[in-house]
């Protein structure tokens, strides 16, 4: 069965994907809300920046992150000025990399969902004297629920499947930065095909079941909704 280091890799992957998704939902919601509602012309620039991680090959993105996180890079300098350590080769560094890497996968579905909600329900709520925060939390967010689900699933799945960025900034430290995709890759490269198949197969089955559960749950929810 799975060895201890492979289990550790599985745990780190789930922890990384979970934490990244949580941070992205927290950061992405206000950003997507703003993008969906603003009439500011410079919005296209922000949209383009959000989509950028889609363009760069992951290893290239990872390489620039490695330079940025290093002691001579802007993030590394900032960290040192704040009295912290450089982030490369740490779990925190992987979270930073993954948040950047999966950003468009969370922001874009949320932005679409908020746009679909439109202004009308919010204006109606405003006439009923709902405060802006109230309107956002009790009208916009519930109506955009499918968008939140898609964003969370895509953000999580994309981080589980992340490889190039982690390869560049992780350093494959067992129990710290060695995630599942790296473990599978190392097994393949080391010609341990049996162990690679087991991990890859397990990952596929697990991901499929997870997606099935989420979509199934969402469907049932929609059916009961009036």
């Amino acid at each position: 069965m799975l060895t201890e280091t492979d289990l550790a890799a599985l745990w780190i992957t789930l922890k990384l994907a979970g934490l990244t998704t949580l941070i992205l939902i927290l950061l992405g919601t206000p950003l997507a809300w703003w993008l969906a509602r603003t009439r500011f012309r410079g919005k296209v620039v922000v949209e383009a920046v959000v989509a950028l991680p889609l363009v760069l090959p992951p290893t290239v993105l990872g390489f620039y992150l490695l330079l940025a996180l290093g002691p001579n890079g802007p993030i590394g300098r900032l960290m040192e000025a704040l009295g912290g350590h450089a982030l490369a080769f740490t779990f925190a560094g992987l979270v930073v990399g993954s948040v950047l890497y999966s950003l468009p996968f969370v922001v874009q579905p949320l932005q679409d969902a908020f746009s679909t909600v439109g202004r009308r329900p919010l204006e109606v709520a405003a006439t009923l004297r709902a405060s802006p925060l109230d309107r956002f939390l009790t009208v916009a967010v519930p109506l955009a629920r499918p968008g939140f689900l898609t964003a969370a699933v895509l953000g999580f799945a994309h981080t589980v499947g992340e490889f190039g960025v982690v390869l560049m900034i992780g350093g494959s430290i067992p129990g710290e930065t060695r995630v599942l995709s790296i473990a599978i890759y190392e097994h393949v490269e080391a010609l341990e095909y049996g162990r690679a198949h087991m991990l890859a197969g397990g990952l596929l089955v697990l991901s499929f079941l997870m997606l099935l559960a989420v979509y199934g749950w969402n469907r049932r929810f929609r059916l009961v909704r009036p």
Partner: peptide, 18 residues
Amino acid sequence: VRGENISQAFQFVKSGNA
């Protein structure tokens, strides 16, 4: 820290991260 290959080990040092 382990690079996938020797080029990556070099990058880790060259970029100052190690």
